[in-house]
Design a protein around this nucleic acid. Structure first.
Lengths: 216, 216
DNA sequence: GTCTATACATCGATAGAC
DNA sequence: GTCTATCGATGTATAGAC
């Protein structure tokens, strides 16, 4: 029963022999390689300007052979979308947040802004709807839900339980990331204001969660 | 000397006869028509998916004839960019702002968020860098400066004179517009939070501009 | 200015052989 | 799975008639 969990995750037919699993792994590795090279092309030429022929060259395939891995160009974008969110989720999972939930909130926002500035086209694909016709697949919606869950966790940790306050919070996160990426790429003009802005936000949370003149 | 200002604005040769002016006006009208139809196509197919042949059909031209009006597709995008900013500037110019500068600030942000939600692709072109290779022309930079000037005016009116506070403000404006457009299109989930968020922001401005416990 | 005609490179995508 | 060959559509651009 070793490694059962991993097998169960995707097997379409039950109890396939060993070599099928190996083949599937090779295929997944190649898929990952294609996605990685697609990011490189996107950074060079722009997200919407990825050429499947250029991409095929980079992974030593002919252009039509890419269709053995992705049903369409939009499916490639979807794979990149999922990959990008997994990168962010991995960063958040690796990070050791402060015990102080307020400090942890600042760290959370700074991590996201930094993540966005690291790669403009990744930010575009993940947080803007820039590709005509692209809608995230169920797998894509799953990773966005996972990010939302992390954010919700941060909200709960500072005592926010209402519906409206997270609306303001998400707007601020999106705004700082956006401005930093597009109006000061490579700089830290907005990143530096994340902490004071979050202190402002936390003061508002205090007002909302403790309407009486409590000691704390 | 009637209408001199308007003539001076663009005339390349001095003292041209009447019919030249009329011709120029017809040309500008056709250019505007092309841009308007381009917006329609962008809304239907996506901003990056505008086809010059489709566009030519819509304005009763053959595709090569478009080059009599725009040097390239990027020049068309630039004309749309300028047109979009002029629309926003016109809305702001038409609006009668409250005498209370704090109320006026809320109105300003709400106008921008509403403007963004009215037209997603317009929001994309104006506020996101989504077209590979497109850089705003000098005329494009002029209209963005004009919008910045209106925002700066609002900042000064509430007593903000430092460098950092507008950084936070612009992030909030961008964030609310972005979230409303992409996470609740057609709704008002973020729009409704503009006022409370601005009250939070104004409380912070108070703290910053009156560090002593002064009456005003 | 607008047309017809044409050209070229590039693109996503498909068919069918192996 | 990978290939070759090919399709239709696209953006871009030019030539030359009217």
């Amino acid at each position: 029963m070793n490694g059962l969990g991993r097998v169960v995750q995707r097997s379409s037919a039950a109890s396939e022999p060993e070599h099928v699993d190996r083949r599937r792994r090779r295929r997944e590795a190649k898929r990952a390689k294609i996605v990685a090279e697609a990011w490189g092309l996107a950074r060079r030429d722009g997200l919407a300007a990825i050429s499947l022929r250029d991409l095929a060259d980079r992974v030593d395939l002919q252009q039509p052979s890419l269709y053995a891995y992705f049903d369409s160009k939009l499916a490639l974008y979807d794979a990149m979308f999922v990959d990008g969110y997994r990168q962010l989720l991995a960063i958040l999972a690796r990070h050791t947040f402060s015990d102080d939930p307020r400090e942890a909130l600042v760290e959370f926002v700074e991590l996201i802004v930094r993540f966005s500035t690291e790669d403009v086209v990744r930010h575009q694909l993940l947080f803007q709807r820039t590709i005509p016709g692209y809608k995230p697949s169920p797998e894509g919606r799953e990773v966005t839900r996972a990010l939302l869950a992390v954010g919700t966790e941060r909200m709960v940790a500072i005592g926010v339980t209402d519906y409206d306050t997270p609306v303001i919070f998400t707007a601020m996160v999106a705004g700082f990331a956006h401005q930093q990426v597009f109006n000061d790429p490579g700089g830290d003009r907005w990143l530096r204001q994340v902490r004071p802005a979050m202190e402002m936000f936390l003061a508002e949370v205090d007002r909302r969660t403790k309407p009486r003149k409590a000691k704390r």
